[in-house]
Design a protein around this nucleic acid. Structure first.
Lengths: 328, 328
DNA sequence: ATGAAAGCGCTAACAT
DNA sequence: ATGTTAGCGCTTTCAT
């Protein structure tokens, strides 16, 4: 049996006040005497009252809902990371009184237009934007506050929160040099993914400082099977090679293990990602890893959107989160 | 500049009809002449009109939103699977005109009560319920239609869609026997996870038919490192051992590769899960795998909820999806 | 086949 | 410090 949810009217009656007083207690937009507030709050608790979302939205134009544009879960295998972002975002949003509505990438520009026009969303959180993305136009046109997680090159209308990938690139090169490597293999096919903004910034950082340091960089070191093969193939003297992977780290490790390459401790593997790697085998006990800082990035993005939503006249701004080493 | 979204009033004016006529065209709850419909639809297109969600919800009590209770992304590493479920659910929901609102497990029973009482959700989709879960009570109490993905033991008030884990257990045993194995190692710690309903049903199926077949079953074969060790340790004659993992398949493979156990083709690995395994190494070219059928399960769950929401007097029912082999 | 009008449950401006 | 009241933009009954 579905029973009618209590309304503010019911609360008012029970507390012996007017309906608007109940509303004022809830929104806090008017001073209320301690005594009245007490009675109202008791009535609210007693009835298990929650304000009707439709009515509140209709009247105040604030739905308490944030739209989260999620990428398709592809074969990319870094979906685990994605999930942790989403969880962290949902939690932080709740802490500020907002709910999260999913908008899949598949819905495209039309999906954005829909959630904007129907007024379900007060603001938007955009993940994994392409460098030139069809969904950006309707977002800007809508005038809704938005935050992109992942820095796109383009527009100044929205805020940005992201890991500082360019700094990350420099850090990786520095680390490789520190470890006396003269070559850096990148896997996860960054070369073919330059259209992804994070990848392109990472590469900028890598290429930039690698040139300075005289470090050889090999892009697209192969999904996994090539890595040991390529490394072994060369004829000259043995070289110290550093490996760095944005994604697909597990596969590479596995392939290396299967071919015995892992026992060659002349390598240094530097890993970034949600995939825990250090505990995968005793052979990898001291892999230096990058802290992906998903929690921080997600929380920052949400807080930034909340700021745009609530602070009057707040303008967009960019926040780059500094990567950190996680020593194994 | 945020401009006011057009209302049905605006559409009516432009089309030269009354406001209610616009509504009737949209809901289809009254016959409309072809001519009028045409004019209204033109006006709608011209203005880019979308009905205001708050107003519609307030009036009709139907928000067009389905609440999706997602589990916390834990260290379990099968978050990739989770993400694919979520994506598939969101897409199927959209196909039926519904949006998905996230409710994290962390919010617990209070979170359920909130989304129910505020009227944001018309129905609920519950994932990864514990066998006895505090969130079930408020769901039932709410009277909202709901579908659980993953079969809980308890209540008949909601529909259920899940993989038939009991049948899966029997299939795994049958397969092991077919492959001339006399021992079955389960990893992913199923013994410690009996509280998870899927796990307990799987074990029921396994134990049931293993006894019949005279197959030795080893639960909790260790997170990964133990597997080869245990297998090698025994003194008697060499035995053919089948391996089956619900989760954490990659780690096991990795450990096996690192210790050379993978080259022993006397083993048969049977894998279930979102983690693609067959392509991980040439050594595993013919691993028989279970099709997790995420797409089907998600879509079925959504369609079932839509049925409960839209078909008058529709009662809850249980749908178990038959597992399938995916031959490598 | 269409229009007029009531009202869903709130927020906020306008009273006192 | 509190009460009264006018809508927000729809859906739906009641009229014609």
């Amino acid at each position: 049996m579905r029973k009618r949810a209590p309304t503010s009217q019911d609360v008012a009656r029970l507390a012996g006040v007017s309906q608007s007083t109940v509303s004022y207690v809830l929104t806090g937009s008017r001073p209320i005497s301690e005594q009245t507030r007490q009675r109202v709050e008791e009535a609210i608790a007693q009835l298990g009252y929650h304000p009707n979302s439709g009515a509140r939205t209709l009247r105040s134009r604030r739905s308490g809902v944030i739209g989260l544009m999620v990428p398709e879960a592809g074969a990319e295998a870094d979906d685990g990371v994605l999930m942790m972002f989403i969880g962290a975002i949902a939690r932080e949003a709740r802490r500020h009184g907002y709910d999260i509505l999913l908008v899949t990438a598949q819905e495209g520009a039309e999906g954005i237009r829909r959630v904007v026009r129907t007024g379900v969303c007060e603001g938007l959180l955009l993940m994994e934007l392409e460098r030139f993305d069809e969904r950006v136009a309707p977002v800007i046109e809508s005038g809704l506050p938005f935050v992109t997680i992942g820095k796109p090159e383009q527009f100044p209308q929205g805020s940005v929160v992201d890991l500082d990938f360019e700094m990350l690139g420099r850090m990786v090169v520095d680390r490789a040099v520190e470890e006396d490597c003269d070559r850096l293999l990148l896997f996860g096919s960054p070369g073919r993914k330059r259209s992804r903004n994070d990848v392109s910034r990472l590469l900028a950082g890598v290429e930039d400082s690698a040139e300075e340091a005289g470090l050889e960089v090999v892009l697209d070191a192969g999904a996994f099977a090539d890595v040991p093969a390529r490394a072994a193939r060369g004829s000259g003297p043995p070289r110290r090679t550093a490996l760095f992977g944005i994604t697909g780290v597990r596969q590479v490790l596995f392939a290396m293990a299967a071919t015995g390459a892992l026992s060659d401790d002349a390598r240094r593997l530097i890993a970034l990602g949600g995939e825990a790697v250090a505990d995968v085998s005793p052979l990898l006990a001291s892999v230096p890893q990058i802290d992906p800082r998903r929690g921080e990035i997600s929380a920052l993005a949400v807080r930034e959107l909340v700021r745009l939503l609530q602070v009057d006249g707040a303008g967009p701004r960019t926040t780059l989160v500094e990567p950190r080493w996680l020593e194994g």
